[in-house]
Nucleic acid binder design. Structure first.
Lengths: 153, 153
DNA sequence: TCAACTTAGATTCCTTGGCATATAGTGCGA
DNA sequence: TCGCACTATATGCCAAGGAATCTAAGTTGA
């Protein structure tokens, strides 16, 4: 029973921390770069995985294809990303950052890095961060391997 | 620099895990109890803190007052919670669960407990869970103490 | 004691994601 | 090579949260 309570508490704390971190990153990214955290993460993924398709983004973030398509619309409308025809399959597009998008993501990454160092680094010591990082990396890989929480559409 | 990368990875892993856990809990709670995770958390808070006001819920979850007001509307509309007049301040109401709401939250808690045991317990050993729980409990208390990521309103 | 200020929460508009459906493009087997 | 099933994505409608605004109700100081 105490195991079960531990998991409930852990999940609650996790969601609370995530909400507050996300809110803070949203504020700073919006103020300094005109984007929000989900856009930062999408841009970073595209920078590190050029030539991805909409479905690849959706799988990475465990959100629906439709939502992903719309989020790419918004990035394209702002001139930060482009859909390029996929020569080997005309149903899909290959996504890439524009030059503006590349500059933006690099600048935004510095903002995020600073904010996280301040917010997390200010509360946890290096060892605790390392241990937590290891645990969530493991959990993430298991959840992804088993396709847990992957949306339908 | 590797510290900064660690924090970026940790945050990314955190958000991915949280998304997948949240998606899964949503699915199971919706299917078995007709609620979603955010409603489960609100009901649980009200069960454990009867007589709270809308602002107390908002502070707990670090979401806006308006959104909280609407979410209480929904709980009330379903007959799971009620607003009772606050005798000492007529601007606010005191919130309480109905009998149905109490039964619901207890049943839903079992569902959540089982799901988390399966999803997290299946990937991390007891020691890793305990360490992570400690870290996030600490982080949460610091973020709340410093009012970090509290929405405007 | 009343006018200015503050506080609690409700309401409105906007954005974003989920889900269902629509459409275009692929590939395979009869 | 035609057609049928499948795949990739786009689109329309709905639910939920954020920000700003509005109203009612306390509070305070001259």
């Amino acid at each position: 029973m105490s195991d079960a309570d531990d998991l409930l508490s852990l999940f609650a704390d996790l969601v609370r921390c995530e909400t507050r971190l996300y809110n803070t990153l949203n504020d700073r990214l919006r103020e300094r770069h005109g984007i929000v955290t989900s856009q930062f993460e999408a841009l970073r993924y595209l920078r590190d995985h050029p030539g991805s398709r909409v479905a690849d983004l959706a799988a990475e973030f465990a959100i629906g294809i439709g939502a992903t398509s719309k989020s790419v619309d918004r990035l394209e409308r702002q001139g930060w990303a482009v859909r390029q025809p996929n020569p080997s399959d005309r149903r899909s597009s290959l996504l890439a950052l524009t030059h503006d998008g590349s500059r933006l993501v690099d600048a935004a990454e510095a903002t995020v890095t600073d904010a996280l160092a301040e917010l997390i680094g200010g509360a946890l010591d290096r060892a605790a961060v390392a241990t937590a990082a290891q645990a969530f990396s493991k959990l993430r890989s298991v959840l992804e391997r088993d396709q847990i929480g992957t949306p339908t559409g």
